[in-house]
Design a protein around this nucleic acid. Structure first.
Lengths: 340, 340
DNA sequence: TACGTTTTTGGGAACGTTTGCACACTTTTT
DNA sequence: AAAAAGTGTGCAAACGTTCCCAAAAACGTA
């Protein structure tokens, strides 16, 4: 801000002390006498002194802020993760800066680099569905920027990661469909290069396998843009329907809502006849028609865990070499038969 | 970041120039010869020089970033506004910092003051439903921090404001209910101290008036916490139902979805018999059951307009004294009869 | 009294920029 | 030919901190 606030210099001048003394008093360093500390603190309180974080950042070469990259804050899963992140970050006196990739690799890279140049102390990122090239992240990481991945994590990147138990979530959802009597279960999913896509596909297959239902690759449809474009969803639905699925397992938030939307729009007559189970953290799911069984991820907790890991890396005295991948359990919320 | 990047000093040393020359060359100032500029730019490109925004901020006493306060990013209306804000801000080389008040005054104040101390150049804010005391904002404003209000704006604060045409939106929604044959129309709304609450109430009353329907204050229920707590919604619904409304006009996003949820939960048998019209920017509204007529605000545009106004204030050479209140039209999306 | 110790304070450089001013060198004007 | 004007560059201070190092004050001890 361009308007003037009082600085350490002002306080020093007013009190006839040196800036070093004031600085130390304010930070409650042991070298300063109790008396002086009280004096400084009292005066600082009176003039409503606030340390200038910019100056501090410049001097300390860190910013006490952490960057977040998600595809979209409008996605309930991500906004819940962000709330979890904030809950920990604020408690530990970090600030957060949120950026959206909108599922675009170019945008993601731009945002990350922008954040990095703004001196963030660490990065929390869920990769965009387009992202395959991790060079730019490796670069920053090797230069010393702590990074923790969550939700969409790369395979071969040695750092902390936090994910949901995607295999089990997918397995449970698919099994639920099977136990409801469905036998031709389609799978609508994200871009193949996302970790969540692979893991959820495996869960889906495992469930089919358990009940001796053959796996039909034609029943699996990938959406490269994660449902950002409604055409890709409508196209997928269009290709799926001729195969007469009686159930669909959908592997992400945006796709789940998008798919129901596409179904209702293009084939309203069948929308209610197909059982749907999908990953979603929407808090509006109870309002949906047709209703669906949802796999909820522990989003808030995921944000918390990821942030704790990140801050531990940031504050580590020596480079961290042991990394964990935390896996959090999902919750299956079974469909309640619609009351008409 | 603590890892080293090249600085102006490094470039100067490598090229045998002074830091001032390099600085000027990088910013393409007229005083520098073409030759030197080329030299510097080429070298800067080679070592992948990025200006340190922290140092720049300190020197220039501004940060090229603008603060945003909304109640919740999980609310679709606000996330759309944020997208609008970003679209303009990024184009004009500003960065945005998003904070959530969660409808709490204390949180809002804390966040604003935190942002201010981080040297934001301006503030975009939608007040929390608890906020009545604007002293802290006036303080910052009078010290020179440009502020633009959007959506929830204070009455007596002389600055730019951007709002939806709340009166007309409310009028249209209520009229729609009336034209559908409803006569006992309840109104569920936010805290009384919000501007949107007052304006929408007036629109509701005007519509009743036009069709000679008496205004019954008992049919109006206020939710002090904007629907953040499900109890307050269930309580409101409980008090409303004995009055046998055949329609409800709901005045905000969170309340609209919350109310339908409460209705379905507490009185599923009547949920489908009451016509609902409400403000909401949810992009999932087509999936809702019971379906509803929605008033959509031009959220993206609102963000854009607010940001343009803010940046014009930030970049004004002399203090701005003429302020505008921009009013954007809402859109009524009529309910489509549910296909069962 | 003089000397070491310990405690408390101050001076000043540094972080990476931007910018007012002065300087040197060319070119133009008179 | 000298003076004026224009062009390109560098010096050094400043933004508000933190922190190394030294200096001063206070206290013990011989």
């Amino acid at each position: 801000m361009r308007f003037e606030t009082s600085t350490i210099k002002d306080i020093a001048k007013a009190l006839g002390l040196s800036t070093s003394t004031v600085s130390r008093a304010l930070r409650d360093r042991y070298e300063i006498s109790e008396e002086t500390k009280k004096l400084v603190l009292a005066y600082a309180g009176k003039v409503n002194y606030r340390a200038n974080p910019i100056a501090r950042s410049l001097k300390e070469r860190r910013s006490y802020s952490i960057g977040i990259i998600v595809s979209e804050i409008a996605n309930n899963f991500f906004s819940q993760v962000i709330n979890g992140i904030e809950s920990i970050a604020y408690a530990k006196d970090y600030h957060v800066i949120i950026s959206q990739s909108h599922e675009s690799f170019a945008q993601e890279k731009l945002n990350v680099e922008h954040l990095a140049s703004r001196s963030i102390d660490g990065l929390l990122i869920a990769l965009s569905s387009e992202t395959q090239d991790l060079h730019y992240l490796r670069d920053l990481y090797s230069k010393g920027l702590p990074i923790v991945f969550f939700d969409r994590v790369p395979q071969d990147f040695e750092t902390h990661k936090v994910i949901a138990n995607n295999f089990k979530g997918a397995f449970d959802a698919t099994e639920h469909l099977i136990l409801s009597g469905k036998r031709t279960i389609a799978h609508l999913t994200n871009s193949e290069n996302l970790s969540i896509t692979r893991e959820r596909l495996k869960g889906y297959q495992a469930a089919l396998n358990k009940y001796h239902i053959g796996f039909n690759p034609d029943l699996v449809k990938y959406c490269q843009h994660g449902g950002m474009h409604s055409e890709e969803l409508e196209q997928a639905v269009k290709e799926l329907l001729p195969l007469k699925p009686d159930g669909i397992f959908i592997s992400s938030d945006r796709l789940t809502t998008g798919c129901i939307m596409a179904l209702k729009k293009t084939n309203p007559e069948v929308a209610n006849t197909i059982a749907i189970a999908g990953f979603t953290n929407s808090n509006l799911v109870e309002l949906f028609s047709p209703s669906l069984t949802s796999v909820k991820q522990p989003a808030f907790e995921m944000g918390q865990v990821a942030t704790e890991l990140l801050i531990s890396m940031i504050e580590a005295k020596r480079p961290v070499t042991e990394f964990e991948t935390k896996i959090l359990d999902t919750e299956l919320v079974k469909m309640i038969k619609p009351k008409l």
